[in-house]
Design a protein around this nucleic acid. Structure first.
Lengths: 165, 165
DNA sequence: GCCAATTAGTCGGGAGTCAAACTATTTGGG
DNA sequence: CCCAAATAGTTTGACTCCCGACTAATTGGC
């Protein structure tokens, strides 16, 4: 934008991307479900914006973080922790291994399973992503309001546990 | 599956899915971001469970609901309202039109745009889904706790607005 | 009328998910 | 011991959802 035809200075239709003309959300506008989703998506995108160029996805950060915090855990345990199918994890771990951030090693006591550990390079990347994650979380804190933070998390935990199946 | 070798009757491995051995979530276990995501996914799946056989996705319900509440709105307006690219909306609307729930009609004042309205069949389906959505929301309410509901929504709105970009 | 801007819709690709089938390994009952 | 069942992980295929780039149609200022 900016410029283009010198004669027509303004009237460029200020970016104004849709702006969601005042729409009636009615009942929907008061639901927990809708706002949960919009907030989660907004948080997701804000995190991605913060980590441009590196790794991006919150799940990948979580994978690195959890391996670091629980060295030697197996893929099945990790998948259960992030509530994903083990087959969803395979390509992620393939990638992290290929990049040299994670090593898979057969468990001596059960050679069907792999233990996962971070390499020094993986720890370095994790630390870098951790900084973004902390900053991101600080921004969320600011928006949530310090006083509401623990209430919010407790409430969300109740929802998660209560809908579990 | 089922069957295959008549001799092996039971022993079908009772579902028993992983059970997530106690893992250390550390810092991650106290973040707003993680719990927002887990809660949203849990809510999504709970809604889908409730609407098996009909339509399922919360977004599709939202589309029907918003068209009903704002008859004549355009696809662009609708996409902006649910914060999606118009190209994400096209296949959904194709489907809803094909099913006879929604009609697209050219706007007389601007024949590039379509106005969207529900057919009687669409209103009937919407009403049916509405019942599920209300029940779903009631369950969320119960888990959130009546007293926390409006606080929670206000908090989520702050997050959504604050991360907007 | 003409043409630049706007809009709807298509196409292609990517990311992410799961279920089912498959391989390799371990376990436990006979 | 042996072999059938269970388990960890991988592969494959289908599906969903998203976006950016593109095409086609239309409008409105000049």
């Amino acid at each position: 934008m900016a410029r283009r035809s010198a004669a027509r200075l303004k009237t460029v239709t200020p970016p104004e991307p849709a702006l969601a003309r005042d729409i009636d959300f009615g009942w929907l506008g008061g639901t927990v479900g809708l706002h949960l989703r919009l907030a989660q998506e907004a948080a997701f995108q804000a995190y991605a914006r913060r980590t441009t160029g590196i790794d991006a996805s919150p799940w990948r950060f979580a994978v690195l973080y959890l391996i670091d915090a629980n060295p030697g855990l197996t893929q099945g345990d990790l998948a259960a922790a992030i509530r994903r199918n083990t087959s969803s994890l395979t390509p992620v771990l393939d990638d992290l291994c290929r990049l040299g951030y994670v090593v898979r090693e057969r468990l001596v006591s059960d050679r069907r399973a792999y233990t996962l550990t971070l390499t020094p390079a993986g720890q370095a990347v994790m630390a870098e992503l951790m900084a973004s994650a902390v900053a991101h979380e600080r921004e969320l804190d600011r928006l949530v309001g310090r006083g509401n933070r623990s209430d919010l998390i407790r409430t969300l935990k109740r929802v998660i546990a209560g809908l579990e199946e």
